[in-house]
Design a protein around this nucleic acid. Sequence first.
DNA 1: ATTCGTTGTGTGTTCGCACACATTTAATAA
DNA 2: TTATTAAATGTGTGCGAACACACAACGAAT
Lengths: 364, 364
Amino acid sequence: MSSGKKAVVRIKDIALKAKVSTGTVDRVIHNRGRVAEDVKERVLKILKELNYEPNIMARMLGSKKQYVFAALLPDHSYDAFWMAPKLGIEKAEQDLRQYGVSVEQYVFNPHDPQDYVKMATKLTKKNPDGILLSPIYYNETLPFFEKWNEAKIPFVLFNTQIAEYDPLSYIGQDSYQSGLLAAKLVHYGQPNPCSILIAHIDEEISNAQHLVKKEQGFRNYFIQQNLSHHYNIISTELNRSSQSGFIKKLDEILESTLDLKQIFVTTSQAYDIAKYLNQRHVKNIKLIGYDLIAPNLYYLENGDISFLINQNPKGQGYWGIYQLAEHIVFKKEVPILKYLPLDVVTNENLNYFRDEKGSTFVEI
Amino acid sequence: MSSGKKAVVRIKDIALKAKVSTGTVDRVIHNRGRVAEDVKERVLKILKELNYEPNIMARMLGSKKQYVFAALLPDHSYDAFWMAPKLGIEKAEQDLRQYGVSVEQYVFNPHDPQDYVKMATKLTKKNPDGILLSPIYYNETLPFFEKWNEAKIPFVLFNTQIAEYDPLSYIGQDSYQSGLLAAKLVHYGQPNPCSILIAHIDEEISNAQHLVKKEQGFRNYFIQQNLSHHYNIISTELNRSSQSGFIKKLDEILESTLDLKQIFVTTSQAYDIAKYLNQRHVKNIKLIGYDLIAPNLYYLENGDISFLINQNPKGQGYWGIYQLAEHIVFKKEVPILKYLPLDVVTNENLNYFRDEKGSTFVEI
DNA sequence: ATTCGTTGTGTGTTCGCACACATTTAATAA
DNA sequence: TTATTAAATGTGTGCGAACACACAACGAAT
């Protein structure tokens, strides 16, 4: 049952009780100095005694302070995955507009580290109040972390984690755990011995730590379940830059692996495997992939992809900006790590994860 | 790139553009009358044109209005499921406290319709500003809907839907769709012909429309996929009031259905089936159930339950109160129907749905 | 003795909205 | 015509915090 009529304490009440003016109380609260030591003590004591909490509405109202956040993220025209974070960022911007928050987006070509550096430099020059970024280039990112730390600009990472140079927080998925989850789904759908393919598409595995973790999680599931001998797990890196090379490599794998029953695609390109399997009229291989982008949804709906694991990319963008605001605008504490849930999406529950009416799901 | 310094539109701006005073604009906005028709039109047009949105901070600041909401829900000591909505309600209350919102909880014994009526009556006497309830008794609820409609108290339903007597909104899951989802999971894990059991536990199917819908969805999946001939789907109602009767009935089913491979429990008592299967040392039957309550999690973790479908009960409570506030406090429009996502939960992604640190997932 | 600077303190204004109150305009009755 | 009233519109104030500014007191330097 809720508590009664808890009289709200105002600065005025504090001032009255301490026999000073509101200005003095204000100076004490904000530690602006110019208050006699004994008076300060007295006010501080009463502040704590009456459990004063500032009225956020009033605080926000008065100050016309504008906060400019910067978001550094890949251009979605190169990879549709990045559309969703962008939408999340824009939704957060809209929700926070009345608190004086605006977000400037700095978009780079995800295949060009130099462009990444260029945009990061440009962003830094603007000296924003907070930064949200997906640091897909490790080495190129570190110097900026140093700069931002020096300039005391808090930054939040999403989608890709770099633990060094403490960010304000990281928002994204737990890649290892998501590998475990994929393995569970594979195992559940394929209890009998067979071969399983892990496919990394269009990414240099040496440069993409999160894919390595996915694979580790996937393989470890079977080890933990004492099923290593049941399954023959192979992994490959595919590259779509050459369409014929892509197909040839898959042809080779299918020819040499007759009992292949499942393919786990660690990136968002499961649809390209589905397309290939369709072309080759292969029917008995099941597919699990990532991300609810349009081409994936097409194959999910007609059953060629069994499951998609949703990384909630829109939530990542939204929550990233929101975390910045929580810290900078509302001056609240924020968790350093914010893992978003691993959503198992099938044709049957797709509608609730799909971004139709501009809604998405995030943590409260 | 984000839009520039879009100056926020104030009543003053509207007034200026419409060549009237702020008072007139105010009257138009709040529909207080006493405005000439043509002026009203003009202001309305500009309002829409400039996309005016009231500044919530300023609005809240001025009025020290207190809102009291009432929540009518079953006592969680009878059924652990109801703990989560309660937590959600309390979290929403906390989040909304600074807008003057408080929530009074009216808790009833879910096995006693009279207690339900008693608490509903008590609640109604308090004349709250809004009501959130789970109307588990259809007939007993209708008269209250009428009363509340007369008294113009908006009410929001959660978990159980009653479409008549339009509520402000309904928050919960789509039972039919969730049956479809369960069927998909069953089918995926059991591609070969077998028998499947649908078990309704501790509920009169005649009095629980949502269970019927779950079964319909489940069965229709196989019909839609042209798999009816592959699977022998049987359903049963079990009652735990007699432990021996419960076991005897299950014994009979298992004896007479040798190829039983999957059991779909439509209620939150999958753990009791898991317990039974353990006692009988049955290993090759897979289980799918609902709700992340402790005993279910136990069996999910040790693998006896394959999947749990999460109904996001905490989110239902949270969002229910939040909807009321959106409508009553913030005077925004709210969707009549709010389906929460159907979460597929396994041991591998459980942690993100579990309510550990007081967090839960809801739509933004 | 005056001027200055420093420290401590109080006052007044602003933010956008809601609502009470004041004033103007138009319509109608005497 | 003027008085009376209703309708239409304008003005003013408070909400609580933040912050600019005013001002008093006092010692030090000129």
